[in-house]
Simulated scan of single mutants.
Amino acid sequence: MTKQLTTQVLALLMVIPMLASCTGNYAFESNVKPDNATEYFSASKVKIFNDESEFMSSFKYVGLVEGDDCQKEQHLAPPDVVNARTQARQAAYKQLANAVIFTSCVDIETKHCVAQVVCYGKAYQLGAPHEPIEQ
């Protein structure tokens, strides 16, 4: 055997066990549960409107919703209106609403947060166009 061939064979013998160890059967565990994913994406099922005149179907007022975002420590990101509105949309979804009209977002002072924003809205259930909603 030539020296070059011997070196190649030795290199191959060293690489094969390393490659074989990469093909093991690994288990993956996660704390993500289907219910959590449903709740997380629930806001996407609630559409934002500016006012009732934009509704192109029958609708029913469901109730008031609110969401907030809190900056817990000075070094953390400031409160975000988008996060507060997302929480309000998730609350609307829990009330079986599929639409929301935001009335205001305000910065509030609190002992528990460095800064906090709260968004308020009205939740609605929209029906199919020109069909009444069951009461």
Rank of each mutant, 00 (worst) to 15 (best):
T103Q: 08
H130W: 14
S53Y: 04
C113I: 06
L19M: 13
T23F: 10
E54K: 09
M1D: 13
A20H: 10
A123C: 07
G24S: 12
C105M: 02
V65H: 05
C113Q: 03
C119G: 06
D69W: 05
Q95E: 13
C22T: 08
H130M: 14
E29T: 11
L19C: 11
I101E: 03
F102L: 05
L12F: 07
F102M: 02
V82S: 10
C22G: 08
V106I: 11
V46S: 01
V65S: 08
P34F: 08
K122S: 09
T23P: 05
Y93N: 03
S57H: 06
I108L: 12
F59Q: 10
A77S: 10
V46W: 03
L5S: 15
N31G: 15
A84F: 01
H130N: 15
T103H: 01
E134T: 10
S42L: 03
S21V: 00
V62M: 12
G127W: 10
Q90V: 06
A43S: 10
F55P: 05
D80A: 10
V46E: 08
S21R: 03
A43K: 09
F102R: 06
I108V: 09
I48A: 10
M18S: 14
N25A: 10
M18A: 15
G67L: 05
C105G: 06
Y120L: 03
C22S: 08
L10I: 13
Y40P: 03
H130S: 15
G24H: 05
P17T: 04
Q116K: 15
G127K: 00
D69K: 00
N36V: 13
T110D: 06
F49Y: 13
Q4V: 14
D107A: 11
